[in-house]
Amino acid sequence: MLNLLKNEWMKIFKRAGTYVMIGLLLFFVTVMAAFIKYQESGGTVPDNSDWQRGIEMQNETLTKELEEYGDTFTPEMRHSYESDIAIGEYRLEHNISPNDSYSVWSFVQDASFVIEFVGMFSIIIAAGIVASEFNWGTIKLLLIRPIRREKILLSKYVTVVLFSLMLLALLFSYSAILGGILFGTPGEVSPYLRYQDGQVIETSMFVHLLTYYGLNSINLFMLTTMAFMISAAFRNSSLAIGLSLFLMFMGGTVTSLVAMRYDWAKYILFANTDLMQYLDGSPLIAGMTMGFSVIMLIIYFLLFQFIAFYTFKKRDVAA
């Protein structure tokens, strides 16, 4: 198995495209860092002394608005108001300033949108890893070894997962290092505050970022698995890339449109990929819980894997 993984890894890193992907990833982060740095040096550092007064005023307005127009609000709006007020009060109580100067952690958080690109690149690799062998004709030489087909496919899937984990780790560490150099590491890191079930919860910034990365990666992970499935079942990398990328960008939007009208939208994959909704905001459809989403994700995952392995095992290699 280790040998198979080495083979797959070698095939990925012997191609120029892989380095282009890594280069692009680092390039995006660098450009962003440069842009923020440039803006920061232009503006003035916000005055930190009077922040308590600011929050008090903000909370007063918010409470007033909530009382006056609360009845016309959608549940999401109501939730966002309540959350802002609660966090404001918590800040006053525990003396946590919101006007933290821009630091490495802020940058890591800002740069985390590049995860979308990690997703894109992982999909491209996943889409190609089985289909390319068919295109190149090398699948014939691969399947006449004394190794069961399931094992060959498994090694390819594991390679895809390792590859996207590597990109994520690279993104995290590169933006941390770059952020550290450009924006400095603050002596005392202010914690991250979030509002859940009527309570304000305090987590350290580092843990928050790891959770953020982890939960954001679920979407990436599921779509990569789907691309892999299409690649193995249909032997067509363009279809796998096209469909997966389309769903990556459009899936969420379409699902929330469906969700406005129909309840069954909660069974759609994309209603469940964003687990952040249970931590930060209200779920897409009332009644959905973290447990429900996790079960749905597992069902989808098993379905994708079953299709991929079943078709790959049964396939007559005739091309």
């Binding site: 040998n3 198979l4 080495k6 083979n7 070698m10 095939k11 012997k14 191609r15 120029a16 190149w136 004709g137 090398t138 014939k140 030489l141 691969l142 006449i144 070894r145 004394p146 190794i147």
Partner: peptide, 28 residues
């Protein structure tokens, strides 16, 4: 069994040696 089925398609982006290492790893 050793086999060539139709044209032996190899990984063109790798050297001949790397191709052989690749397939060698798949047998004991």
């Amino acid at each position: 069994v050793g086999a060539i089925v139709e044209n032996p398609e190899m990984y063109k982006f790798m050297s001949g040696y790397q191709n052989l290492v690749h397939f060698g790893r798949m047998s004991k």
